[in-house]
Nucleic acid binder design. Structure first.
Length: 258
DNA sequence: ATGGTCGTTGGACGA
């Protein structure tokens, strides 16, 4: 089975790219983040014609997540037990579904904005809540895929010195990520492709390969042992390819043995 | 320290 994750930065503006991506890589399950669409705004027709089922949660221009699957979608859940919410909760950050015997979570970890912003404390709370909820999922095949908004190591950032007073590289964020690995979860993409997954739109960051590795697939042991490969589809981020503007994130593809 | 570019929108604001 081939699973992918992609912060698509608006599903409606990039539906043509999503459909082409699903076909180009023969994707079975695609977890999306930043869909910026309510469920009823998702353009379903083309996806259904390609044989895919869709589950989604989100609100207008705010953060939304979705899972597109052609191996069946069952037991769909919006959010996880104990998931912290920020104020009016006008965001959807976690969507779980069972696809082909694997529990897939499309996660959009809070950005945090600035280390002194309330959103930063919320980010750490959210990650702690996820860790607690995930502790009961470890014995079944589970994939926590998505935009983690964390650079776990300095190698995951084109210039760590530029992020001294920014989120993504702070010790508490890194500790929150490492906690999953200490519990036995395995980030499976790094071993196969250590390249960046996100490049800012401005300053020609992609052309100069000045990016971040922040999109990951954190798998439970029974699933991690079945992973046979993974790669970042950098072509999908390349402004020189395709006729429409790309997302600022590249998709990540993970192959799993039956 | 600041600004750069997208997307949603119809003016900022978040990333």
């Amino acid at each position: 089975m081939r699973i992918a994750t992609w912060n698509v930065n608006s599903l409606r503006s990039r539906i043509d790219r999503v459909e082409a991506f699903l076909q180009r890589h023969d994707i079975d399950v695609l977890a999306l983040q930043e869909t910026k669409a309510r469920e009823e705004q998702i353009p379903l027709m083309g996806l259904q014609m390609l044989g895919y089922d869709v589950a989604a949660a989100g609100y207008d221009q705010w953060n939304g997540v979705a899972i597109i699957s052609r191996v069946g979608l069952t037991d769909v859940t919006v959010g996880f037990e104990g998931m912290p919410e920020f104020k009016d909760a006008s965001e959807a950050r976690a969507l779980g579904a069972t696809c082909g015997g694997v529990r897939v979570w499309s996660l959009y970890v809070p950005n945090g904005r600035k280390p002194d912003d309330p959103h930063y404390a919320y980010k750490l709370d959210w990650l702690a809540g996820l860790r607690t909820a995930a502790s009961s999922w470890q014995d079944v095949p589970t994939a926590l895929v998505g935009d983690w908004n964390i650079c776990p190591t300095d190698a995951d950032c084109f210039d760590p010195s530029q992020f001294r007073n920014s989120t993504h590289l702070t010790p508490p964020e890194r500790a929150a990520f490492a906690a999953f690995e200490e519990d036995g979860w395995v980030e499976v993409t790094r071993a196969h492709d250590a390249g960046y997954t996100y490049w800012d739109y401005y300053r020609q960051r992609f052309e100069r390969n000045r990016g971040l590795k922040i999109d990951f697939a954190v798998c439970s042991p029974p699933l991690a042992s079945r992973v046979t490969g993974a790669f970042v589809d950098r072509d999908e981020r390349d402004p020189a390819q395709g006729t429409s503007s790309p997302s600022d994130h590249a998709p990540v593809i993970i192959d799993i043995a039956d």
